[in-house]
Every structure is written in structure tokens, then in C-alpha cells.
Nucleic acid binder design. Structure first.
Lengths: 225, 225
DNA sequence: GCTTTAGGTAACCACAAGGTAACAGTAGAT
DNA sequence: ATCTACTGTTACCTTGTGGTTACCTAAAGC
């Protein structure tokens, strides 16, 4: 994760950057707006942390320039200006966050991480052996071949994923799949069979295991807990 | 823009909601976590504002449940707990922002608006295969031929673009297209059919896919992981 | 060793989800 | 006032799903 840190007080900057780097956040540093613009023209950042009061070009101006240029890199203002009007100015210029000095380093770090997430795809991916599942996209692959599941089959798989690698008892599964009806005795049995034939291909190791008398589990091998 | 406001002090909530609504932010209100969960099961919100200390279910627990369920609605904590540890807890549970009481109403409003933007497309141009969409100008081209959509057709397309390449369930789509009415059962079906005939031309690969029993998705069928 | 029971496998069919087309009411334009 | 075209409604058709039933296999119990 790469951050552009723009701040004219060098000692504060140094201290902060040192902390952030320990937290796995790499930093480029600029001590004024113009220098920041230069760096921005040749680098892509996950987040920009911006002081407001700076020589040459202040943070507000820089943020405005950026955003109106169509750059959507998230901006956090980090400034001693704690008046409401300043904050509102910051947000109206398109900033994503506004933190006032004095601040606590871990909080800044947490906020940077939130913003860095923002542009990443929000897909939740589940992987186990050669099984790849993208939950938001409803896409399932087994050894790079797409597997098509129907709605009920899909809810069974999701329930198993939610509990994996733990064993899920049949009652819990039934409630997850048919929330507002009492399913008849054999429905789950049939459903598990169908999903198994689709997911556990003959040439692959099986991932859906039955623990007799207990429940079903999605994991690489049946033995051990 | 629709916000879920969860807060157990009724007078503070009332005051805040009144202010937000003047600022064009519609609010649903819950005074505890359980009630919030109920509302969340039947509504889709742009942002959730969460108090921490509440009867029945506290805000941290609620946020944890939501996020681990795969719900990506942005969460702001709004609480008197201003200790660093509390903030870090909030962020580690997946919250997008954390504001401490006492707070200023316009700042809350600004922060809500930032988060509501978050799920909107960042770019005014959307491209997929031979489909080119300029969202601001409402211009749509398929293989360089302009496509003219009506207002409702356009809002369907926008909703699909917002979620692409993820699958959108029918309820979410209906809420996005007809925000203040319960659409009759077949309206969406017909609308999708109409948009499909306009966008998915016979000689091109189809981009609007139905995931039976789940929803609609706008994407190419290329196998990504 | 025999019985019992949980679970595996297979085929069947009603029906719901979705696709398509035609029609009607209504709002906006001229 | 008239016309147009958009939106919502209804009807009909197609197909895949999901529930059902039946039968089989293999553990577990006695």
C-alpha cells in the first residue's frame, strides 16, 4: 500500500511516516503542494494525506486541482484547523476524510487503511484447494472450470463456506437454506448429493465430507478437527 | 439517499434526523441493534450511522454481524466513546468512519455524503465489451451505435453498472428503480426484457445475464477469477 | 451375523421463474 | 386538443428447479 504524505513540518512528517511504515504502509513524502503534484504526475497512490497550511500551494488548492482533474485517489486532510467551516471546506473539495491535529498515529493508520480498501473490489473470495468462489459475483470455479449452481445449491454452498472448516449439523443447514419452512426429511440429502457431483469432480480430491451422525463439512480432508 | 440511524437516545436522534432530512438525507430510525437488523433485512441503505452503547444489541456487535454476513453498506460509528481503543475496535470491525460525540451536525452530514458516494461509480465513463456509457451525459453506445433509453430503462442500467460485475438481486434493483413504491411483480421482468433488446444486440455477445433465482448481472462471460 | 438406520444415487414431474408479446392508461409534446 | 411514446399490466409460453419417491449401500448397534 502506497501513500503520499504531504506535510510541511518535517519532524512531524518523519515521525508519522516511520510509524506508518511499521504498519505496512509505504510512504512518499512531499513538503508542499507543488512537490506533491510532481510526485502525483509520475506515481499512483492508494491514499493521499494532506496538510492544509503549506508554503507554495496549500492543501485545499491541491485537493481541488486533483479532484477537478478527475483524479479519484482518496484524500485525508490532516490539519490543525479544527473549525467546522474548515472541515466542510475540505469535504466540499471532495476529500474523503478529515482528521485534526493533534491526532493519534494508530487512528490515522486505521483511516488510511479504510480508504485504501475503498477502491478495491468488494468481492469476498473463498478459496480451498482448487475451489474458487466469488460470493458477490456468484461465480464458482473448480480447477479453473466454471461450475453453475442453482439457487438452493448456492445457498448450501454459502452455508458450508460460512462455517468452513467446521462441521455444520444438518439442522443448521436446513435452517440456513429453507429459513421459513420445515424441509421434508430427504431434501437436504438430495441437495448435498447434487452439489457434491458438481463441486467434487472425480479427478479432484473431495472437499464436501459427511461426518456420519453429525453433519457436513467443507474442507480438504475429513480426518482431524 | 437513505440512511439507517441507530441510536438509543430518542431526543438526540430526533434532532439529528430532522437536521439530516433538511439536508436531503432521508432517515430510517432504530433505537437498538435488533430493530436495526430487522430494518436491514427488508431495506437497502446507502449508509448506516451506529451508536455503540445500546440496549439489546450494541453497535459493535451489529457492525460485526453485518460485515461478516457480506453486507458492504458503509458504517459510521457515532458515539461518546472517544478512547483510541474504541476507535480501533470500530475500524477493525470494518467501519468506514468514526465520529465522537459531541459532534456537529453539518460534519456528520458531510461524512455521510462522502460514504454514500463511495458505492457510486467513480468514473463517468463505463465500458464493457462494446458497450460505452457516459453516465453524466446519459449517452449509451453499443458497438459505436447510439442507444436511446427511456428514464426507467436508464435507471435500471445505472443500477446494473453500479454493481457490475457483481450480481444484483431483484429486490435491490426494484428499490433502486422505484424507490418510493412497491412495484408490481412483473414490472422488473418486462423492464429487463426491454433493456436487453436495446443493449444486447443479436450479433454481439450478451452482457445482461439472469442468474436464475438470484438476480441480474452486467458483465462479459469471460472467465475471470 | 443379523437388523437397523443414516446416508448415497437415480429418475420423475409439477410448478415457479423468467422470456416474450400485445394491450391499455397516462403523461408529455406539439 | 391530438398525438406520441413511455410505463405498467396481463397473458401465454418455455424451461430448469426443486421437491418427491424409491431403491441401494454401508456404517452402527445388538
Amino acid at each position: 500500500m502506497l501513500v503520499l504524505f504531504v506535510e510541511d513540518e518535517r519532524d512531524l512528517a518523519e515521525l508519522t511516516i516511520e510509524f506508518l511504515e511499521l504498519d505496512d504502509i509505504e510512504c512518499d513524502y512531499a513538503d508542499n503542494g507543488e512537490m506533491a503534484l510532481n510526485l502525483l504526475s509520475s506515481n499512483v497512490y492508494d491514499v493521499i494525506v494532506l496538510d492544509v497550511n503549506m508554503p507554495k500551494m496549500d492543501g485545499f488548492t491541491l485537493c481541488d486541482k486533483l479532484k477537478s482533474k478527475g483524479d479519484h485517489t482518496p484524500v485525508i486532510f490532516l490539519t490543525a484547523r479544527d473549525a467546522l467551516d474548515d472541515k466542510l471546506t475540505g469535504f466540499s473539495l471532495g476529500a474523503e476524510d478529515y482528521l485534526t491535529k493533534p491526532f493519534e498515529l494508530p487512528e490515522l493508520s486505521a483511516r488510511i487503511k479504510v480508504l485504501a480498501q475503498r477502491n478495491k473490489p468488494k468481492s469476498t473470495i473463498f478459496e480451498l484447494d482448487t475451489l474458487h468462489v466469488n460470493i458477490q459475483q456468484c461465480k464458482i470455479y473448480r480447477s479453473n472450470k466454471e461450475v453453475l449452481l442453482t439457487r438452493t445449491q448456492w445457498s448450501l454452498l454459502k452455508a458450508l463456506i460460512n462455517h468452513s472448516p467446521n462441521v455444520v449439523d444438518r439442522i443448521t443447514l436446513e435452517n440456513a437454506i429453507w429459513p421459513d419452512q420445515i424441509p421434508s426429511k430427504d431434501m437436504l440429502k438430495t441437495l448435498v448429493f447434487r452439489v457434491r457431483t458438481l463441486i467434487d469432480l472425480p479427478q479432484e480430491q473431495s472437499l464436501i465430507h459427511t461426518i456420519r451422525g453429525t453433519g457436513i463439512v467443507l474442507r480438504t480432508n475429513a480426518n482431524g478437527t
